[in-house]
Write a protein that binds this DNA or RNA. Structure first.
Length: 207
DNA sequence: GCGACAG
DNA sequence: ATCTTGTCGC
């Protein structure tokens, strides 16, 4: 079956130490080329503390503003966090997907719930993350000699879809391009190198 | 009580 | 997450 995916976005936020200011961003890239097409940056305020298992309550409000500011929605959004790889199967990707009624998935750098066996050492090797008898995601080795990332569907896709999309989104770094680019952009935004708002990348200047 | 604990 | 410099390895 065809993926039907033409664009995929990465969503993330950047924080300043000792500050409640949050810098949220969504970067849209072409799929599967992984070229940045546009991005939306919004500054907001964290009104909820970071509590493992409740990340969405802290980050979703500002990311939602960045989402509403996007004139053209991507086919899929990859979050820096989890989808159903969560104690209650409701990580930030699942949470946002339900609220915005869009297709989402999660890609976390550390395990939040469940158990898993270390995946094979090669690039593309993976293992299932299981919690209470349910497969809730995968530990995926995106490169050799790096710790695996944790992939899981958020809203509107299957476990298999999330793994396939994640694998097709990996470039030359450990983090898949969507979240890697999102992280890069929100950091440039926080340091003042990029202005708030919606920005379309000039494909003619892209070479 | 002990270990785990996304960002 | 963020604060930080150099440093080791491919």
């Amino acid at each position: 079956m065809r993926s039907g995916i033409r664009t995929i976005a990465g969503a993330d936020i950047s924080l300043s130490l000792y500050s409640q200011t949050v810098f949220a961003g969504i970067v849209v890239l072409s799929f599967p080329e992984m070229r940045v097409l546009s991005y939306s940056l919004v500054q907001g305020t964290a009104r909820f503390p970071y509590v493992p298992g409740y990340l969405a309550f802290r980050e979703v409000p500002t990311i939602m503003e960045a989402w509403e500011q996007l004139p053209e929605k991507p086919d899929v959004i990859m979050f820096d966090g989890n989808g159903i790889l969560h104690a209650r199967r409701m990580g930030i990707a699942s949470h946002f997907g339900v609220l915005a009624d869009c297709i989402t998935m999660g890609c976390a750098k550390k395990k939040l719930a469940g158990k898993f066996d270390e995946p094979g050492e090669g690039r593309g090797q993976f293992s299932e993350v299981i919690d209470k008898g349910d497969t809730i995601g995968f530990a995926l080795r995106t490169k050799e000699r790096v710790k695996p990332v944790f992939i899981s569907p958020g809203h509107g896709m299957s476990l298999e879809d999330s793994l396939n999309i994640a694998m097709q989104s990996v470039g030359k770094y450990r983090l898949p391009e969507p979240t890697r680019r999102a992280h890069e952009h929100v950091n440039l935004f926080r340091t003042g190198a990029l202005p708030a708002g919606y920005h379309k990348v000039d494909t003619l200047t892209l070479f």
